[in-house]
Simulated scan of single mutants.
Amino acid sequence: MLMRKIKTLHKARYTPIADLVTYNVLPSPSLPQIDPFLFLNHHGPQVYKPNNNGLPFGPHPHRGMETVTFIIEGDIMHQDSAGHESVIEAGGVQWMTAGRGLIHAEVSSTKFKKEGGPLEILQLWLNLPAKHKMTAPQYTGLQKNEIPMVQLADGVEAQCIAGGWQQQKPAFETISDVTIATLYLKKGSSLSLKVAAERNIFFYMIRGEVMVNEIKASMLHLVEFTNQGEDLVIETLSDSIILFGHAVPFNEPMVAHGPFVMNTMEEIQQAYADYQAGKFGN
C-alpha cells in the first residue's frame, strides 16, 4: 500500500451573504483550484424562521462550466433560461451544464420561505474542457430517492452522483471523466479507497471528524492531496459526511471572471458581449 500524500488542510473562510451563513472553501488565497474542481461554497447549517426571504441567488448568467448543488437540508428551487424548473429537497442533487451560456436563478421554495426550517446546501463548480465550453446547456435535478446508494464498508454509504462505484450506474452521466460521491460514515467505521495517482482528489469535510491517511480532518476543512500514492484510508472519529471526488486534470489555460470560466480573456469578453446582447435567453 502506498498512501496518497497530503499536502495541507485548508479551512473554509466565513463569508456570509446577507443573512445566509456561507463558508467559501475554494478558491482560497493558498489554493486557486484543484483542476478541474474550481469553486465550492458551503451554505449553512442554519435554521430559517417562518416568513423568511430564503436563498438570495436571483437570475445570473454562466458560461463554460458546470454547477453541482448538494442539498443536505432544506430545499432549492431552480429556474433557467433553457426552460428547466424544479424544486429539489433534502438529499437531492442538481447538475447544471452551463456550456455556451444560460441564465438561472436558485432560490428557496414558496413553502420553505413560508414555513422556514433547517438549511444546508453546497455548490461545486466544475470546469469544462475547451472542446466542450460551448456545448448546449443542460440541467437535471434529482431527489434523494432517485440517486443510488451503495454500501462501501460497514457503516459507510456512498451516494453515487458521478463515476463508477462498485459497478453501480451513477445518477448523472457527465461530459468529462469525473467521479463524485457524498460519503456518509458512522463513528468508528473505516474505508479504504484507491485513486490513480494521475487523478486529482477533491476531499471536503461537510460534517464530522476523520483520520485520513493518518492526518486528522474535521468539518469545514478541504484536504489537499499531492499526486504521490494511490491509497486512501479513512477512519471516522464521529459521524461524518464527506464530499469526495476525483478527476484527471485538464491542464489547460483557465480564465475565471465572475460567472464565466473560459480559456482566454478574449473568450471572457465575448461571453459578456453575448450576455449583454441577450444571447443567453431570459
Score class of each variant (00 low, 15 high):
V261I: 14
E224Q: 12
A247E: 02
Q167L: 09
P253Y: 01
T236G: 05
L243M: 05
E214K: 06
H257T: 15
A196P: 00
G188P: 06
K187L: 08
D177Y: 08
S238K: 05
G188A: 07
V212W: 01
Q276E: 15
E173M: 03
A256T: 10
N200V: 01
P170L: 06
V223W: 01
H221T: 14
I201Y: 03
L222C: 14
P170D: 07
K194G: 14
Y204H: 04
T236Q: 03
S176L: 03
A256D: 08
N200W: 01
M219N: 13
T182F: 03
V178N: 05
H246L: 04
Q167R: 01
Q276R: 12
F244Q: 03
I180D: 11
Y275I: 10
P249R: 06
S240F: 02
D239I: 08
N263D: 14
N251I: 03
K216E: 13
A196D: 13
A181G: 09
L243G: 00
V248R: 05
D274H: 00
E235M: 12
G245M: 01
A197D: 13
A273D: 15
V195W: 01
E224L: 09
V212Q: 03
V212D: 07
N227D: 06
G164K: 04
Q228V: 09
M211S: 13
Q166R: 10
T264E: 09
M254W: 09
F225Y: 08
P170Y: 09
G188E: 07
D177M: 07
K194L: 12
M254C: 11
N213C: 02
I241Y: 05
I215E: 10
N200I: 00
A197V: 11
E266P: 03
E224N: 14
M205Q: 05
I180G: 10
Q276L: 13
M262A: 15
Y272R: 07
E235R: 10
A181T: 09
K216A: 14
L193Y: 05
A271H: 02
A247G: 04
T182S: 08
G208A: 02
T179Y: 09
F202S: 12
Y272E: 13
V248A: 12
E235H: 11
M265Q: 10
D177L: 07
R207C: 15
A271Q: 01
A271C: 04
L232N: 04
Y184F: 12
V261R: 02
D239C: 05
V178A: 04
L183H: 06
I241G: 07
Q270P: 00
S240W: 00
T264C: 09
P259D: 04
Q167P: 00
M211R: 07
N251D: 13
Q168G: 14
E224H: 13
L191Q: 01
Q270F: 10
P253D: 08
D231L: 06
Q166H: 04
M254G: 14
S189H: 11
A197Q: 13
E266S: 12
L222I: 12
K187W: 06
M211N: 15
L191A: 03
E173P: 00
S190M: 10
G258N: 05
G164Q: 04
D177A: 15
S189Y: 05
K216N: 11
F225N: 02
P253I: 06
E209R: 01
V223S: 08
V248K: 07
I175S: 04
S218R: 04
M254K: 11
D274R: 00
A247H: 03
R199K: 11
K187Y: 07
P253K: 00
